[in-house]
Amino acid sequence: MHFSTPIFYLVSALVIIPAVLMVAMRNLIYSAIAMIACFIGVAAVFVTLNAELLAASQLLIYVGAISILILFAIMLTRRRSGAICLFFHRQSWAALPAGAALAVVLGIVLGSARFSAGSAPKNPSTANLASLLFNQYAFPFELASLVLLVAIVGAVLLAMRERRS
């Protein structure tokens, strides 16, 4: 009841293209658009992993909302004329060992990790997830609304302070 492994690898490989473009682009707006493409790709990866609700959330929250916030932030902060450019500080000599070290650490972690597929639920469908969320985990679900309420209050307070100053 899931996609074959080659499709997963194909989609995963395709996602790397916008991810690299996002870092390599010198214009921030192009970077942001590459990032949105990357978000969509990650949603596709979730679909190949059978995590459909996660894919829907990825599309709704990351593609639909977070990317708009980031584009807004770019539009608000950029200077009056001309394209904003990413700053390159000629730090490739420092970036190379740092990147290599990160690759080594990730390699060790991934190599030693045991992905136990046996303990995973047999049928991780959205309906099963929903019945867990609204029966067994109903209280944490209601708490999530309080967390969101705090976020609203925080956003309003910040916006009002900006407006007054």
Partner: peptide, 13 residues
């Protein structure tokens, strides 16, 4: 963004 997160919870519900 906040009400978008709310909408995500409505889907499984």
């Amino acid at each position: 963004v906040i009400f978008d997160v709310e909408a995500v919870f409505v889907y499984p519900w």
